[in-house]
C-alpha cells in the first residue's frame, strides 16, 4: 500500500537533512514540499478516460498526479486517486492480487490487470493512459458491462458433462490426460483477451477468445463427454472460424495462457472430427 502518497498538497513532512532527493517528474507539486528522503518514490501522472453518464453524455480525459512507490501497482495509484482526490472515479477490483479478474483495463494501450501492472514498469516519466477495455459497453469510467462476455461464456457450457451412473469414488485421470488441458484451466474470466481482439471489437457476436478457452478446457478433458456438443456450438459463423490469429489475446492474458494456441487446437479438433 502506498500510504505516503500525498497528491497535490505540499506535504508537511520534513526530510532528514541532506538526504539526496529524487526530482519529481511531474510539475504538479512544485512548491511547499520539503525535501524527501530518497525512498524511491516518484510522482506519476495518470491520464484516465472518464465517463460519468449522470454528469456528461460524453467521455473525456482527466489527469491526476499522485506520488507512488517503486513497489506500487497501477491499482494502488487508482486507489490513491479515488480515496484522496476524486471519489467519483469508478473501477472494479476485488481481490487485488491477480486472481479474481475484476480489474482488467487498457493501460498504455494494452489490456492488463491494474493489480499486476507495476508502475515502475510502465515508464512513469510519461503520463500513463488508463481506459476501459474495448468492445464492451462502458457503464461508468473504467467499468464495462460484462454481460455480453459472460453470455458467450455460458453458451459453451463450461461445466463437466457426463453420461451414465455417477461413480462412487472420484473420476480418475492420468497426469498426461490432465496435462492436455492444463493451460486453459488458468482462465480467470477477466476479459482481457476478448476485449483485445479486433474481430470482437467489430463484431460483438463473436464468441471471443475467453469462451473458446473455457470450451477447450472441457473439450480436451478425458472425463468430459460434451466435447462433440461444444464443438458443434463453436462450429458457427460466429465461432472459432472468426479467429484470424492476431495474437492480441495471447499477449494480453494476465495468466499467460497461450490463447491463440488453444483456439487453433479447437479448430483442428473440428477438422479432424469431420473426417
Amino acid at each position: 500500500m502506498s500510504t505516503e502518497i500525498a497528491p497535490e498538497t505540499g506535504s508537511a513532512e520534513q526530510a532528514p537533512g541532506g538526504a539526496p532527493v529524487r526530482e519529481p517528474q511531474a510539475a504538479a507539486v512544485a512548491s511547499g514540499r520539503g525535501e524527501r528522503p530518497d525512498d524511491g518514490s516518484f510522482d506519476v501522472t495518470l491520464r484516465i478516460r472518464r465517463y460519468l453518464p449522470e454528469k456528461d453524455a460524453t467521455a473525456y480525459w482527466e489527469e491526476f498526479t499522485v506520488r507512488a512507490n517503486r513497489t506500487d501497482r497501477l491499482l494502488d495509484a487508482l486507489h490513491t486517486v479515488k480515496w484522496e482526490i476524486d471519489g467519483s472515479l469508478t473501477f472494479r477490483r476485488s481481490c487485488a492480487h491477480g486472481i479474481c479478474g475484476s480489474d482488467a483495463m487498457r493501460i498504455n494501450g494494452r489490456n492488463r490487470l491494474a493489480c499486476k501492472a507495476l508502475l515502475k514498469d510502465l515508464d512513469p516519466a510519461k503520463p500513463i493512459t488508463v481506459e476501459p477495455i474495448k468492445g464492451l459497453p462502458v457503464v461508468k469510467d473504467l467499468v464495462v458491462d460484462m454481460e455480453p462476455f459472460f453470455a458467450s461464456y455460458r453458451e459453451v457450457m463450461p461445466f463437466l458433462i457426463t453420461g451414465g451412473n455417477t461413480p462412487s469414488a472420484e473420476r480418475r485421470q492420468s497426469p498426461e490426460d490432465r496435462a492436455r488441458y492444463d493451460d486453459t484451466t488458468k482462465c480467470i474470466l477477466c476479459a482481457a483477451c476478448t476485449s483485445s481482439c479486433p474481430v470482437f471489437w467489430n463484431d460483438g457476436q463473436y464468441f471471443g477468445p475467453a469462451a473458446i478457452v473455457n470450451a477447450h478446457r472441457f473439450i480436451f478433458d478425458s472425463r468430459d463427454e460434451g466435447g462433440a456438443q461444444r464443438l458443434e456450438i463453436l462450429n458457427d459463423k460466429e465461432g472459432v472460424w472468426r479467429c484470424r490469429t492476431i495474437f492480441n489475446c495471447t499477449e494480453a492474458c494476465p495468466r499467460g495462457i497461450e490463447v491463440t494456441k488453444a483456439i487453433q487446437e479447437v479448430k483442428r479438433a473440428m477438422i479432424t472430427r469431420a473426417f
Binding site: 494501450g109 479486433p198 490469429t245 495474437f247
Partner: peptide, 11 residues
C-alpha cells in the same frame, strides 16, 4: 478519441 490498441507483431 481513445488510444490505438498497441498490439504487437501479430496484430
Amino acid at each position: 478519441a481513445g488510444t490505438l490498441y498497441r498490439g504487437r507483431e501479430g496484430m
